[in-house]
Each structure stands twice: as structure tokens, then as C-alpha cells.
């Protein structure tokens, strides 16, 4: 059973914004809404600048789905988190709940009036009839119904952004990491995410167990 996921390789992303453009073009996303965006840290710092492309990550246990007061979210059989704009009231709870800032709200009027939420659909459309005009206008193109993958991942020039069945993209990424040798504590950012390796330990080598202690 396929479980659709995105994975972005920070070692490969060159911040070209091709994925953002592909998404906007494919789904005719309105002005002011970015379903996908590229986030860069340490901008301009040589050797430390890293970028990743971020959108809805189609969480297995989606917090947006948990907090929605009108329960407009649903998950497809292949693990894509979608929502029904006919039910959405634009309250913004999902935006506060999402750790990736994926939900977007078009500014529909003055005084901060918000429109209905819009987000990445993994190019899977919405609850309207597949490949219909209504679906395209509300949610964008349904590429999965055409047997294709999301436009952002397929258009990525450096193949930094991988999209599709989680098992397959994990295999692609695993092979890539093994080939370039940057794995575990050798990977950039490992210390920030998981703590610094103990003094004396080199790279991914685990520290020696203390004498007499339990391993």
C-alpha cells in the first residue's frame, strides 16, 4: 500500500525555487498564496547555507486534522491529507497547529478577512469529481488521478525534492546518503538536531562503553 510522502535533500537543494514555480503553474495558485516555498538558513554563510523546500508534509497523524472545528480534512487511502473547501470556515486553527506553516489563507478582503484555507494537495485535487473543472478551480490539478507524481518533485532539477511512495523515496535517499558518506553524526546539522557527539568521539563512531558498565 502506497503512502505518499515528500522528502527534501538539504545537500542538494540549490534554492532555485523551481518547485515553487512548478506548483504555482500546475495548480494556478492565486496571487499571495504559496503552497510550497524554499526556506534557507545561514543565508550567505559559505559552507553553512542550506535550503529545503517545504509544503504540507501529509503527516500520518496530521495535527491540522485533529484541530479543525468543522472536520473538513480527510486522508485518502494512499495517505494524502486533503480538505474540503466547501466545509472550511477559514478559522486558521490549522495554521497554528501545523509545524510546517503549510495552510495558506488568501486575503479575501479588508480588515484581515481571510478566505478559505489552501494548501498543497500532493497534486491529488480534492473531493470534487476527479479531473473536473470544479476540482481544478478549487484545488488545482489532480495528477495522481492521471498516474503522475506531484509537479514540484518531478520538476526538481537537482532531484533534491523527492515525492511519492514513502518506501521508494526512502530507498532512493538511503542509497544517495550511503554513496556520499554523510550519514549519522557526519551529516551537516546532526549536532544541532541531536546534540553534539561526546568529546573524543570522531564522526559516527560510538563512544566506548565505560568499563564495568552495562552496554
Amino acid at each position: 500500500m502506497a503512502r505518499m510522502k515528500f522528502l527534501c535533500d538539504a545537500e542538494r537543494c540549490i534554492e532555485c525555487n523551481g518547485c515553487v514555480t512548478a506548483c504555482k503553474n500546475e495548480n494556478e495558485v492565486p496571487w499571495g498564496v504559496n503552497r510550497r516555498r524554499v526556506v534557507t538558513i545561514n543565508d550567505g554563510v559559505i559552507g553553512a547555507e542550506k535550503s529545503i523546500s517545504v509544503a504540507c508534509m501529509h503527516c500520518s497523524d496530521a495535527p491540522c486534522m485533529a484541530v479543525c472545528p468543522v472536520d473538513c480534512f480527510y486522508k485518502t487511502a494512499d495517505g494524502v491529507v486533503l480538505h474540503d473547501k466547501d466545509l472550511c470556515i477559514g478559522c486558521g486553527y490549522c495554521f497554528y497547529a501545523c509545524p510546517f506553516g503549510a495552510p495558506q489563507f488568501p486575503q479575501a478582503g479588508a480588515f484581515g478577512l481571510r478566505g478559505k484555507m489552501d494548501k498543497c494537495t500532493f497534486c491529488a485535487g480534492g473531493p470534487e469529481d476527479d479531473k473536473s473543472n470544479a476540482e481544478f478551480k478549487k484545488y488545482g490539478r489532480n495528477r495522481l488521478a492521471e498516474g503522475k507524481l506531484p509537479a514540484c518533485a518531478e520538476m526538481c532539477s537537482t532531484k533534491a525534492l523527492l515525492g511519492g511512495d514513502g518506501d521508494v523515496i526512502a530507498d532512493i535517499y538511503r542509497e544517495r546518503v550511503a554513496r556520499r558518506g554523510s550519514k549519522g553524526a557526519e551529516a551537516w546539522g546532526w549536532g544541532s538536531a541531536y546534540g553534539q557527539p561526546p568529546k573524543g568521539a570522531q564522526g559516527g563512531v560510538a563512544p566506548a562503553a565505560p568499563a564495568g558498565g552495562k552496554s
Binding site: F73, T76, D78, D84
Partner: peptide, 13 residues
Amino acid sequence: AGQTVRRDTAAWN
């Protein structure tokens, strides 16, 4: 959560 909307068609259909 996620039980209200039930009218989507699966991609393979």
C-alpha cells in the same frame, strides 16, 4: 477526525 468528508474518488478509480 477526518470522518466527515467521504465523497472523494480514489486515484486508481
